[in-house]
Design a protein around this nucleic acid. Structure first.
Length: 264
DNA sequence: TGGAATGTTCGGCT
DNA sequence: AAGCCGAACATTCC
């Protein structure tokens, strides 16, 4: 679930509980969740909780604890572990549970480095985005969700952003031109900002660190809405597959440029 | 019952 | 090199 707005919401709800507090113990309940060796973190202080793309990072004294939530990872401020709790990080009288149904997520330790990813989707400037798009021939949607190109976007927000920008997901990036690149940048800022304000999208079981669902799914205009009318023009939303992922779009608002072949 | 699901990585092909 | 595709990971849901 967690893309940029959900990771941001988790950070905002988790930080007040644990920043400045001392970690008492860490219980790895599923080896898959910690694929690389971790040092003993007991006694270290959580100096800061922050977001890196769609990942959640805890700055501890002496290193970084990085949570990759992937499809179903959650960080819950809750003492008792549940059936899907893969790691429990205990504080005095309290705990954070790293829950993950599908077990694609993981937790990693580093002395200070973060993986090299593209610029943050909320921080990049319009001109920078336009410049980066101009150099790529790949289709825009898979490019937007490529974390090495831009960090933070996943399947839901890529579809919502492309719809608001009126850009077809199969448009080659370098064919966007200045006007649509600026529209894409503006749409990205708007969608992400609104989604954060509403606590992210809860489409199956995403909740923030306090167990609250988000509400942005009520504002989705295309994602998961095959057959429903486009809120902008009334045409029926369609579902296609792009880059192996389900992709929802309005065939009337989002046209391919002339000369670009692709199934609408 | 088969297919799809919010993510990422890898190998192979063009 | 860049880009694309399918498979794999594990589980649930419809």
């Amino acid at each position: 679930m967690p893309e940029l707005p959900e990771a941001e919401t988790i950070v905002r709800t988790l930080a007040p509980h644990i920043e400045g507090r001392r970690l008492e113990a860490m219980e790895i309940r599923s080896a898959r969740a910690a694929p690389e060796p971790l040092p003993d973190l007991a006694g270290r202080t959580v100096e800061r909780v922050r977001r890196y793309g769609k990942q959640v990072v805890w700055d501890l004294d002496g290193g970084l604890l990085r949570f990759e939530l992937r499809m179903t990872g959650l960080l819950l401020w809750r003492v008792e572990p549940g059936p899907y709790t893969r790691v429990r990080l205990r504080f005095c009288g309290a705990a954070v549970c790293f829950d993950d149904i599908r077990q694609f997520g993981s937790l990693r330790w580093s002395a200070g480095e973060l993986p090299r990813l593209g610029p943050d989707a909320l921080e990049i400037e319009a001109a920078d985005l336009a410049r980066r798009l101009a150099g790529r021939r790949a289709r825009i949607k898979p490019l937007l969700t490529d974390q090495r190109f831009l960090r933070g976007l996943g399947n839901i927000y890529a579809d919502e952003i492309l719809h608001r920008a009126r850009v077809h997901p199969m448009t080659p990036a370098h064919r966007l031109g200045g006007a649509r690149a600026r529209r894409l940048h503006a749409a990205m800022r708007e969608v992400l900002t609104e989604a954060i304000a509403l606590g992210g999208s809860s489409i199956s079981d995403y909740v923030d660190a306090d167990g609250r669902p988000g509400r942005f799914q009520e504002r989705h205009r295309v994602y998961g809405r095959e057959g429903a009318p486009c809120p902008a023009c009334g045409a029926r939303i369609r579902r296609i597959v792009v880059g192996g992922r389900g992709t929802w779009l309005c065939p009337r608002c989002q046209r391919l440029p002339r000369g670009v072949s692709g199934r609408v």
